[in-house]
């Protein structure tokens, strides 16, 4: 068994409103005069997983995402090996 580390990047789908992102964008625009035109606040989940090989590890990460980490109704995700 080997350990593999991944980052799961979770974002709301583009048609889902993100009030937290909108608020942060507004502060950057209004308080700091930084011309941010779009800001979406998601979450990144760092995890380490034990598996025989990278392919198996990746399958387990996908399972974790589909079962619990991501609500695929409103969110999308990307998995990166780190």
């Amino acid at each position: 068994m080997q350990k593999y580390r991944f980052v799961v990047d979770v974002q709301y789908k583009s048609n889902v409103r993100d009030p937290r992102g909108e608020m942060i964008k507004r502060v950057l625009n209004d308080e700091y005069d930084i011309p941010v035109t779009s800001l979406r606040l998601g979450k990144s989940i760092h995890l380490e997983i034990e598996a025989e090989n990278e392919g198996d590890a990746m399958k387990l990460v996908s399972k974790a995402c589909e079962k619990l980490l991501v609500n695929t109704v409103t969110e999308t995700y990307e998995v990166r090996r780190i």
């Binding site: 889902v16 009030p19 937290r20 909108e22 608020m23 609500n71 109704v73």
Partner: peptide, 16 residues
Amino acid sequence: IEMGILPGALLQNSTG
């Protein structure tokens, strides 16, 4: 909703 018994999603209030 998270159980899938009812459809849709409940997200943060638009006012934040």
